[in-house]
Every structure is written in structure tokens, then in C-alpha cells.
Amino acid sequence: MAPTAPTPSDAPTGGSGSVHPAHLTRPPLGLRERKKLRTRMAIRRATYQLIGEQGYEATTVEQIAEAAEVSPSTVFRYFPAKEDIVISDELDPALEAALRARPADEDPLDSVRQVITQGLTAALRADRAAVVQRTRLMVEVPAIRARMTETMTTTSRLLTNALADRAGRPRHDLEVQVFTAAVLGALREVTLYWAGRDHQDDLIELVDRALRMLRDGIRL
């Protein structure tokens, strides 16, 4: 979904896509999950460092594996494609849980806005440089941008399920699916707009502006 930043060792981490919230409340991770998370984070840190030094295209999975002190097969086990290292994260379940935890009588768009803006605020506070680097790559590398669009399907399904359950509607309800698609589409465009303008604007204000446009009706 949205830009996210690497987080401390046992916290849920993002790298979204799409505009994705970070630092959402989740149950404590077990030892195995923490080890997996540390490996994923090591791979991401190595990737960002190498890309910063030599560019995206020149950075190979073999180089990433060596820098992260893992095997290339381990990199591919965690990230099926190189683009996934930049855009994937573990936050979709946390996003769904946070959305379900919002007051039942709250307007769905307000619930989404609260979850997204809280997560983005935390991500920017934790590591703005990583968020900037990630979103810059989304603009500069067509393969990353295309992969970002593909991976939004998972986020869309989880959000659709949460919103449908809250509203007492079937999960295949057309209106719910259109609502979710509109929100995620708006967040994608906000991400690209923010990065395309060299991250000069206030990202939270841009998100609010885009979601207000959905709430008030799209008029030019």
C-alpha cells in the first residue's frame, strides 16, 4: 500500500506499498517469527544500502545475499522477486486488525483514514529516509511500480473482508469492493505524487486531501 519503513527487531515491519501503515498493534511474536523478521530486515537493509551505492539495476540478488550474510536461495524464499524486497511488508494482517478494532459506528472512510495516517506518522517518525528511498524507487523503477500494483491484491482482499464484516455485507459485495479499490487507488496515487515532487509535501496532509476527495465526491 503506502510507504513504510523498517522497524525495530521484533516489531512488525514494512518496507507497502503502496501507502501502508506501520507500527500497528499486533500480538507479540514468537522466537521463530522474530528470527524470520530479523532475516527479512537484514535483507532489506542490505538491499537499500547497495541500491544507494550503485543503483537498483546494478544490484543483484547475489550481492544482496552476500551483504545480508544469507544465501541467494534464502533471499528468494523470503522475497520471490527482487522488487518484493522494496515493496513487500508484513503489515496487511495488522492493518486488517487495526481496522476491525475501530468503533463499529464510525464511518468506514474515517476508520481507514485513522488507521492509515497513524501508521504513516509512525513510519515517518521511525525512519523517514527509508520511506523516501522506497517511494523514490517506486517512481524511478517501472518494474517496482508494476509489482506494487500486483501486490495490492492481497491488501485489497483483507480490507474488503474487514469492511464487509463491519458493515454486515457479503465479502463479495460490489459496493465494498469498489470502495476498497477507490481507497487503495487514491493511496497509490498519493504515494507516487509525493515521491514525484521530491517528497516536499506533507504526506499526511496529502492522504487526508485524497480521502476527503473520495468522501465529498470527485469533482474537478
Rank of each mutant, 00 (worst) to 15 (best):
P80D: 01
L120M: 12
T13F: 14
R34Q: 14
A143P: 11
E96I: 08
Y48F: 06
H23N: 10
M138T: 09
A65G: 13
L29G: 12
L203S: 03
T121W: 01
R128L: 07
P103V: 00
D202E: 04
A58V: 01
V132S: 02
K82W: 07
Q200Y: 05
R113A: 14
V139G: 13
M148N: 14
T153M: 09
G14H: 09
D165G: 04
A65D: 10
G217M: 07
L137P: 12
R45P: 02
L50R: 14
L137M: 14
L206C: 03
P3Q: 06
G17P: 10
L192R: 11
A181Y: 15
R77V: 01
D127M: 06
L159T: 04
A122E: 14
Q133G: 15
R32F: 01
R113Y: 03
E69V: 11
A123E: 05
P170N: 12
A97W: 09
P72L: 13
L203R: 06
A101F: 03
Y56E: 01
T4D: 00
R26I: 04
F79Q: 07
P28S: 06
T117F: 02
L99P: 13
L163S: 08
R197N: 12
G217D: 12
V70G: 13
L192Y: 11
H199Q: 01
R157W: 00
V115I: 14
I116G: 10
I43V: 08
S16T: 13
Q63V: 07
T74D: 05
A210D: 02
D89N: 14
S18Q: 14
T7C: 10
A97S: 15
V131W: 02
A94S: 10
A11I: 00
L220E: 06
R100G: 12
T60Y: 02
V183M: 05
M213I: 07
E83L: 14
M1T: 07
